[in-house]
C-alpha cells in the first residue's frame, strides 16, 4: 500500500509540474494589453493622467 501511494504521489507531482509548464506558455493577453497601452500612450503622446484630474475643478 505504501509503495502504491508513493507511486501515486510521484506521478501526481510530475503531472502537476508539467501542467504548470503548459499553463505558462499560454499567451498572457491581459499583460500584453497593458504593455500595448503603455507603448501606445508614449508613441501617440496620450497622457492618461491628464484626463483624470477633476480634483482641482471640483473645488
Amino acid at each position: 500500500m505504501n509503495k502504491m501511494q508513493n507511486w501515486a504521489l510521484a506521478s501526481l507531482l510530475v503531472l502537476g509540474l508539467s501542467g504548470c509548464v503548459t499553463i505558462n506558455i499560454y499567451f498572457p493577453a491581459a499583460a500584453a494589453e497593458k504593455a500595448a497601452d503603455r507603448i501606445i500612450d508614449e508613441v501617440w503622446q496620450l497622457k492618461p493622467d491628464a484626463a483624470k484630474t477633476p480634483e482641482g475643478e471640483a473645488q
Binding site: G16, G19, P28, K34, A35
Partner: peptide, 15 residues
Amino acid sequence: VAMLSCAPAVAQGNL
C-alpha cells in the same frame, strides 16, 4: 502538491 504546483501560473505579471 496540486495547489502549490500551479501557483506560479496564477502569478502572471507584466510583459
